[in-house]
Every structure is written in C-alpha cells, then in structure tokens.
Amino acid sequence: MAESHAGANRRDFIQVASTTMGVVGAACVAWPLIDQMNPAADTLALLTTEFDISGVEEGMSVTIVWRGKPVFVRHRTEKEVEEARSVDLDDLPDPEVDADRTTNPKFLVMVGVCTHLGCVPLGQKATDPKGEWGGWFCPCHGSHYDTSGRIRKGPAPSNLSVPPHEYISDTVIRIG
C-alpha cells in the first residue's frame, strides 16, 4: 500500500473516534426511548397520599388508594391490639413484633395486597370473612392474616407490607 505508517494511524484514530461517537450517540438516543416508559410527571405527583383518620371509628376499616394500590387503615379495638401483641413470635412464619408495624398502636396502616400473588385480601367490611385469626383472609389461595396483618397460614411468604407513613398532625397521616 502507498499509505504511510502515520496515515494508517490517523485513519485508525478517525475510525475509533467515529465509532465511539456513534456508540455514545446511540446510547443517548436510546435513553429517552427507555425513560419514556418510566412513570410520567403526573404519576410521580401522586406518590404521597394524605388521609385524615379522625373519621375512622374504633372497629372500622377504610380502604384508600395510594399509588394505585389499596391501603388498609384499621382502627383496631383493644381486643385486637391485645391479640396482636400477645402472640408468641415462634408461631409466626414471618416473625415481626406488632409494635414495629404501627406508629400509633390504635391504627394499623398497610398495603392491602396479598404477598402471595397480589390479590386483595378480604376483611375490610364487617361481613367479610376475616380468616382464622380475625384479621384478613385472601380468597385467591387461602392465606390467613392476623389482626396485625401478619401471615399465619397459607401460601403467602410474608406479612402484609406496611407502607412508609407518618403523622403530620394528630389526625392526618401521610403515606409514601
């Protein structure tokens, strides 16, 4: 070849540079195409939900929507709190102390989605079956949850999850 050695090097450099830029460019183009599938700004604006618990009387349950999922808010009776606190941790498939699951022991707040395959357990309405431990019962595959929302029997691997929440006043909780 007539090309000098220096010329060949320069050509290599140009080729490497153009290829690199092409790869970087392709990655820059790919990102918006992927990121558009992430939650949009209007979805992200609904990340937190505020809820006034003052209307929830003792023994009453309310289901609210948070990030498109049901959240159970239960104002527990003395008896239910007592039951939840007196359980021997060795009896639990997913041992967790009730006090760790609530900020205010009266109010249990948890995501109402069965940890087995995502059905919504029954037990919010007075007439619902509440399972053998008087909490919640998932009709899909028969998981029983106690009055602290902990799994006691059935295929679900873990307790109903407690979403991050805090009291921003005496009666208002912010979930998320």
């Binding site: 140009i14 080729q15 153009s18 830029m21 092409g22 460019g25």
Partner: peptide
C-alpha cells in the same frame, strides 16, 4: 454540537 463533530469525523472517514 455532537452531530457536527460526528459528521466532520464521518466526512474525514469518507474521504479516506
């Protein structure tokens, strides 16, 4: 800006 640089490089490659 990115495309300008890349196109110049492509032009040089093409010439070569």
């Amino acid at each position: 800006l990115f495309l300008l640089i890349m196109t110049v490089l492509l032009y040089v490659s093409k010439r070569r």
